[in-house]
Nucleic acid binder design. Structure first.
Lengths: 227, 227
DNA sequence: GCGCATCGGTGCAGCTACTGTATTTTTGTC
DNA sequence: GACAAAAATACAGTAGCTGCACCGATGCGC
């Protein structure tokens, strides 16, 4: 009934991966890791298109059915099961921020979320290499961002409401929120592209900040033409 | 070897659809139209996920193999085979534009390209309805824009070069071009979203201009925080 | 009109991603 | 060690998509 490509998220059970330390959780994490590592390794060796799900399964020693239970999609194995999620604290900080610079704060929040999150540097490096030479995966990552954006619109609206701006007193409020998010999306996409091109040495957070600055420079150059 | 989803473009032969008036060309156009109409009609009736390629083929009276020869992808039948392409004249006008507002001019060029191009209003209306209630197709359209963006970066760089700015005298030139394009992409995505949500009555070109204005308002609000 | 080269449509065989379901194996608990 | 919950698997099936070889339709020079 629903989209095959994106319906595979949210596969984890009730317990968090690191929360309960049962054998089950550990095995689960191991399997996930094995699948992702196998996928990336095989793709780096043979090229993404020439790797089949069955090959990954054989390398990771799981059944194809299990593969889909974990990854949801072939692509999922290569991109990894980690959509960058903002902390609850960061969430609250953003919503109740009082500044005028919504866009800057939003990007800042995302940057913070990325900073939290850095498991398995080696896999990350290899994945970056793979995506660098596999444009279709880049597209996939982009779609994930699009998915995230839906959620961000709500966040921005929450903040607007907290500032006393409502749809009643500001007719274009939803449009404005969407635009803010669209622009944040630009910054994220631009950063992601640069990140995966390997032309940047530094933390993701720093890259996001740089991108934001560049964006402001570009839009400032355009703005004087406005009336 | 290559991406299945996007490799299906550029299926048309050398002659343009309306240029040579052979029987062949007419038949071709008829088949294409029949496929797109059948696809949209079926999806509006049964829902996108419940429509199979075989159903479309039966309705349009072509073989499944032919379907893929024309549309390249199942999605392709619903989105239509028309990637909005700028005129050569518009291209030159943009590249040799002397103004500072690259972003504005770029969006303007795209708007002009959209304006040229308005075949079969009825199909367009029904397609809009379909996409409105089928988010996955929206995602597909977004990917197309991403494809377009690669080309736009070259355009912007051409213009920079025509203005005497080179990678030699401006180290960040490529980055700047990419950012301009990313922002234009934002405007396009935002507009597309609004367009397909049905919450806009007017021409696509007007919508793009409105979106650009909104973007400038939002970024202007953020800019004062910069130093 | 006629034969000929070409092009487009089709049938077929096959691969691969993905899913539902019933069954077996593994893990946590008493 | 028995038992319930959960995870892994086997199996069968659907659907998107492709390469290839074949054949009929089309365009063209005569």
């Amino acid at each position: 009934m629903s989209s095959t490509g994106l319906a595979g998220r949210g596969l984890r059970g009730p317990g968090d991966p690191a929360a309960d330390e049962g054998l089950r959780a550990r095995k689960r994490a191991a399997t996930q890791s094995a699948l992702e590592r196998a996928a990336v390794a095989l793709a780096l060796e043979h090229g993404y298109d020439n790797v089949t799900v069955d090959m990954i399964c054989e390398a990771a020693m799981v059944s194809p059915r299990t593969f889909f239970n974990y990854c949801g999609t072939k692509e999922g194995a290569f991109l990894g099961g980690t959509p960058p999620k903002p902390t609850d604290a960061a969430h609250q900080a953003f919503v109740h921020g009082t500044g005028r610079d919504v866009l800057g704060d939003l990007v800042g929040m995302i940057a913070a979320a990325m900073a939290d999150h850095s498991p398995d540097t080696d896999l990350l490096r290899r994945r970056r290499l793979l995506i660098e030479r596999t444009p279709e995966l880049l597209t996939g990552e982009t779609s994930r961002i699009a998915e995230l954006e839906k959620h961000l619109v709500h966040l921005v609206l929450e903040r607007f409401h907290a500032q006393g701006r409502t749809e009643a007193n500001t007719p274009e409020l939803v449009d404005e929120a969407r635009m803010v998010v669209a622009l944040a999306g630009s910054v994220m996409r631009y950063s992601m592209q640069k990140w995966f091109s390997g032309a940047f040495t530094g933390t993701p957070a720093a890259l996001l900040q740089d991108s934001l600055t560049l964006m402001q420079r570009v839009t400032a150059a355009a703005a004087p033409a406005t009336h």
